[in-house]
Amino acid sequence: MKHWWWKLLAALLVIGASLAALLVPLAPGLTECVPSSLSPGTVTLSISGYNTRFDRNGPPAVGLTDGHGGIQADQVTVLGPTSVKAIFTIPADVGGRSAHVVVLPSSGERLVLFDAVWTGSGEGSLPDRWKFPEQAAAHGWEFPNRAILYETIRNLMFHVPMWFTMMVLQALSVGYSVAYLRSGELRTDLQAEKAVQVSLFFAALGLLTGSLWARATWGAWWTNDTKLNGAAVTTLIYLAYLVLRGSVADAKKRADLAAVYNIFAFVLMLVFIMVLPRLTDSLHPGNGGNPAFSQYDLDDDLRRVFYPAVLGWIMTGLWLFNLRVRMSRAFR
């Protein structure tokens, strides 16, 4: 128990976080509003929701707001748990801007479909007859429902920990390479090699989960994004590291060359990966004007799963590394 408690913890964290990532419900949200533009007179909007229960506890309140004013629906008809119809009376001479559709179910949530409708060909803003509440009521444990991401927000618990684990293992490998150059012990060289091998496994998983996520949100398996280029360069560098090891027969010489290349490549890569995305645009959060997850996207409901997932995966990576080192010693 003394020696393997952390392995048990790693397994529990990974399993627990993965289950939570898949099972915690997504918060209710709005997905669609038809038609997409208004005209003066009576307008009927058909609004679709996701994970909503409009049929419970009486019809929700529905409103329109354009940032200057807002109006409430005259009549709301519930068509089903995820579908509602709202009839508005639009004053004359309204238009020229987009408006958000707000649905307030009686359970206290606040559902907003941002920029859902164009207010029409007039010039005035909506009359200031209605305001939606600033604060939504407290809710149970659920992941935030965000446009574009929707259910794929769960991938956060898988994709990001893979890269964190990879970076930890590569830093470890460089540490062993430095230790090798200082001491000349081949044991540390073996550790550096195994850390790289395991880190490449996590890089492959990171690319796979990232590729699926990109397809679902950005519409392509691969995009010309600085972060993606950085990931590709990293993977290529460590594949080259393994090629270099494969092409030298003498163990001592191989260890020398591999350690020098490892340190050289890692430092250059680190500089590029840390600095270059900040100089250029990126689709990833935290770069080029996109907000980072940590600022306001990552709310407490996500954090509760994300941090255990990161910790669990890093520990699993170290565990794998440990196994690989012991295996190659046993077989020698």
Binding site: V233, L236, I237, A240, V243, V248, D256, L257, F264, L268
Partner: peptide, 22 residues
């Protein structure tokens, strides 16, 4: 590095390309 590895320009391309790319 590649000269010490005793492998010609092939190894140099493999090692150098990812480092030089960024």
């Amino acid at each position: 590095i590649s000269a010490r590895a005793g492998n010609g320009i092939g190894l140099m391309a493999v090692l150098g390309f990812p480092v030089v790319l960024p």
